[in-house]
Amino acid sequence: MEAKVLIYSSLSLLVLAVAFKVIIHLRTRKPKNLPPSPPSLPILGHLHLVKKPLHRTFHTLSQKYGQIFSLRFGSRLVVIVSSPSAVEECFTKNDLVLANRPPSLVAKHIGYNQTTLVGAPYGDLWRNLRRISALEIFSTTRLNMVLGIRRDEMKRFLHKLGRNSSQYFTKVELKSMFSELTFNIIMGMVAGKRYYGYGEEVKNEEEAKRFKKMMVEIAELGGANPQEFVPILRWIDHGGLEKRLMRLAKKMDAFLQALIDEKKGKEEGNTMIHHLLSLQKSQPDYYTDQIIKALW
């Protein structure tokens, strides 16, 4: 019993010491000339003000603090810009300054330690991934080659809408339908597969179940988690977020690698994976499997 009391007491003192250190660090490191900001709480900053839907929260704050104001999400500084002219300036004159995304647990594990096109910091890797995507994936020629996939999915979507309201007016939940349409178009272009639908529309039900489950997990774990903004919660892995992300990352990597391996040495195709694997044959050191997964 005495040993347990000693352990708990030590942990409590450690937590208090870390919290005190974080507070001092934030107060002494406060940048100059920040936009106006609401009163904040120690450690949490303005996290207590964040309520869904976010755009309404930000709109309410902008009416009081102006079109450019700052918030602190735990240890991270966030600047909210709602002025169209200021936003344009951010993405033109100051685009390089604002090009990088802050590191996160999601980018670390799901994003291959920030080496994907979406999460990579501005630099040689990002420029290389962008060049490949612009020339080999999103060029007019490549997009026209998979035009049939997009047309087919739109026909299925409209047919489903028509079937639901063939007799009478009916209420339709479009959010999930648009989500399924988007995923089917993406995966059709990437791997020539459909994962949402019924009966013969989905060839491999088991694979489709795994994919849909992973997408749900990514949506659940990839949101604004307190652990990303409060260091002490991240250090103790509050809620087991990092462990869950590590497990999900292994499943995602195995899934993507299986798609790549399936296309190797098989029939010709117009999908993104087929095309990148054809380039891999002539430049294996450049178009690696990891590069293909980073472009997904």
Rank of each mutant, 00 (worst) to 15 (best):
N164A: 13
N164G: 12
E89S: 09
L256I: 11
V5K: 14
D95L: 01
E206I: 09
E262S: 12
P231M: 01
L16I: 08
L117C: 07
M215Q: 03
V146F: 11
R131P: 00
A86I: 09
K30T: 11
T28A: 08
E207N: 05
L98S: 01
E205T: 11
G119R: 05
Y112L: 05
L161R: 04
N144G: 14
Y195Q: 04
I292D: 05
R127S: 02
L6D: 15
V22S: 14
H25R: 13
Q257D: 11
G222I: 04
R72V: 10
V15H: 03
I24C: 12
K251T: 09
K243C: 10
L143D: 13
Q280R: 05
K243G: 12
P38W: 09
G188D: 09
S139T: 08
A120M: 00
L135D: 11
I186L: 04
L47F: 02
G222N: 01
I232M: 03
A191M: 04
R131W: 02
L158A: 15
S12V: 15
R247A: 15
M215H: 00
H275T: 13
D95P: 01
S10W: 14
K175E: 14
M187H: 08
A219M: 14
E206D: 13
T115C: 01
V78P: 06
I186C: 02
K251A: 14
E267Y: 00
E153C: 02
K30F: 03
L125D: 12
L11C: 07
I273C: 05
N33T: 06
N33D: 13
I110S: 01
H109A: 03
F169L: 14
E200C: 00
A17W: 08
S166A: 13
L129W: 02
F255Q: 07
G239F: 04
K209I: 10
A224Q: 13
F58G: 02
L276W: 06
G239T: 01
A258Y: 04
V146P: 11
Q67C: 12
A208Y: 00
A254C: 09
A224D: 12
K209N: 14
Q283P: 04
T141M: 14
H159S: 15
Q280E: 13
I273F: 03
Y198I: 11
K263V: 05
L129H: 00
I132V: 07
H25S: 15
R244E: 12
A249E: 05
G123N: 07
L158W: 15
K293N: 00
H109E: 13
L96M: 12
S176W: 08
A191D: 13
